[in-house]
Amino acid sequence: MEQRIALLGCGNVGKALIGILNRKGRHLEGAYGVRMRLVYVGDPRVGAAADSQGLDPGAVLEMLDRGALPEAFRGDVSEVVKSMGATVVADATPTDLRTGEPGLSNARGALSSGAHFVTTSKGPLAVAARELEEMARERGLKFLYEGAVMSGTPLISLIRNGLAGCSISRIEGILNGTTNYMLTRMAQGLSYPEALEEAQDLGYAEADPTADVEGFDPAVKLCILAWVAFRREIGVDQVDRTGISGLTGEQVERAARSGRSVKLVASLWTQGESIMAQVKPQELEADHPLHGIGGAVNAATIWTDHLGKVTVSGPGAGRDETAQALLTDIISIGRD
């Protein structure tokens, strides 16, 4: 099976995916029976490269390293799909969580033109998950987004495939690596300002860290998981949210001396016919599955009827890690 890929977004994640295809394209075809032909790469900042016969990923990387691609960027995704014969649009663009753009328009354009759509962006899901999944299903297409939660760590596919047949009653997760790193360092003696500065120096935290430290990022991820696990749409304003900016290093260190760990826990559970969602710092006892998750690692524990508690942990961010999620989704489409 051949997948003809149009890649939108040439930042860290997009370049990482091109790099994987360059290094491992033949191996992936042999291992999974899916030939991945890159036919379009575009980003409004650097231009575009297109070839319906297939681009050389190595040559594209060299052009990106020089800072420009040879063609003008085509903002119309439908045109790209039709002219290049793309079967999959891979979206690695930055996102606006309020509007879902530009990923939302990219998804609509791809699906309406007959191409599958895979994305790492939380925006389209936060705004229009039901619409996009129904749009894909009506056309016999796939809309996949493994990388939207926990990067390349396969939480979404675990819920949808690995736990198929189980009833899920609760999910608790450490879904933000920035705050988990900061809390780990605060438990080791750093103050809040010192931990934040270190996280920013290491690239974990943005210059404006509000989305992380005030809990917006994990709250949006809970909205996505509510749809994945319970097929219910909830808005970010329905998440009871408290961040970590009110914590002091002394509080976190004191809990650590008592054998507990402070984590920013994102929780989702059923209560009668309602779905409840909460993000807040919690002191976890040593026997809690998330107690020992340190650094920038993400993890989630899922309460099920057949298997009890199931916990998965792994990288929650990173260029290669997030590109792996796109790759997983593309391979899944090809194998199906």
Rank of each mutant, 00 (worst) to 15 (best):
N161T: 13
R319F: 15
R319K: 14
A68I: 03
R335M: 15
S191M: 04
T93E: 07
E133Q: 11
G147L: 08
M182L: 07
A255R: 09
I330L: 08
I224G: 01
V239A: 05
A92G: 00
M276G: 01
A115L: 02
T87F: 01
P209V: 15
A129N: 02
S245Y: 09
R37I: 13
V60T: 10
G249R: 01
V239P: 03
T99M: 08
E214T: 12
S112Y: 04
L8E: 03
W227P: 07
G42E: 11
G54T: 00
G103K: 05
A296E: 05
P154K: 04
G165W: 03
V228A: 08
D76C: 14
S151M: 06
W269Y: 01
D96M: 10
I20C: 13
I224S: 02
K221G: 12
L17E: 02
V60D: 09
A6N: 04
G19K: 01
D43C: 07
S151R: 04
Q324N: 14
A300G: 05
P94T: 13
V213H: 04
F117G: 00
A256I: 05
A6Q: 04
M36W: 10
G215S: 00
G259M: 00
A277W: 00
S167P: 05
G75L: 13
V279H: 02
L141E: 08
A323G: 13
N161G: 14
A48D: 10
A31M: 09
V213M: 04
T270N: 05
A256W: 06
S258H: 06
G165N: 01
A68L: 08
V39E: 07
Y40D: 04
L61W: 09
G140H: 03
P44C: 03
Q238M: 00
V81P: 02
V149T: 05
Y145G: 01
A92F: 02
A50T: 10
L327Q: 09
L144W: 10
L307F: 14
G249L: 00
E194D: 11
V81Y: 10
G100C: 09
T304L: 15
M135S: 06
D329Y: 05
L38S: 03
A299N: 04
F230G: 07
D212H: 15
A6W: 02
E194A: 14
E273I: 10
D208W: 05
L64V: 01
V236K: 15
G75H: 10
S83A: 15
M150G: 07
H116W: 04
D43M: 08
G177T: 14
L327V: 11
L190F: 14
E29F: 06
A92E: 00
L28G: 02
H27N: 05
E2R: 12
